[in-house]
Amino acid sequence: MNVQEYIESGIIESYVMGLASEPERAEFERLCVLNPALLAARKKFEERLEGYASENAVIPPPEVKVKVLEAIGKPASRAETLSIPPKIVTMSNEKGTAGAPFTLRLIAAASIILFLATGFLYYQTKQENKDLVDTNDRLKTSLDTTKNVLDRIVKEQADVVSNPNVTVVNMVGTTVAPKSSANIYWDSASSNVYLVVKNMPKLANDKQYQLWALIDKEKVDLGVFDATDEKVILKMKNTKKAQAFAITIEKKGGSSSPTLDSLQSVGKTSQSQ
């Protein structure tokens, strides 16, 4: 047989690529042993094919290697079957990591880092959650307290306004402060005096408004208040008698006698006649 003709027949490619029939394969293998030129030609084509395949390699998904290494680390229970191993990713055991290649160790290290990071995040989240719960509790307590106070104020306000013994004294502005106005609720039975600021100009920080009662020509101090106390009912000092009420601007904390040229508003009572 002419070896060159045999080589040119395509048998090498057919054999190497797995397309030759059984008799062809047997013959080719037999001839290879006998014929160095044929063997060399086979090896040359194999090298070419391998070179070409390597140049055209497609990078497989990285998890395949992990699964393969994991599978071969275990005894071959399904050794000769062609079935696809189930896709179960388990953590590698000691045996696997001891002599494991770099990638597997890297993955193991990454898993540990991930585990620690998860643990830390869990702890942090838990801590944050605890803080939020605490804050929430504090806010709730604060809200309850505020609500109680507000309820008391509303109740007090309602009591004052609806009480038949209470007289309302309308305080009107003087020429110095024409827009200043406030209401006095005066309970003649209990002699309680309440003040509601309707519109009082804001004062300097070292000044305060002071309420006075005019009792038989005497000016009696009923307490100080601020313009910012607007729309809130203020409990002032009690008085049994009063012909009029007056509001002046005084130094912070109040004065013992009113500065009359700063008289802001005046309201007469029914006792003034």
């Binding site: 390699a57 990078i59 395949v64």
Partner: peptide, 28 residues
């Protein structure tokens, strides 16, 4: 793996997941 994955993908052209299953099986 790359060269073999390439040939597998040339045969199983339309399903990368099955192709990588085959690669896994091949190496085992």
């Amino acid at each position: 793996a790359g060269a073999l994955y390439s040939i597998i993908k040339q045969i199983i052209t339309d399903n990368s997941e099955l192709a990588s299953d085959v690669l896994q099986e091949v190496f085992i």
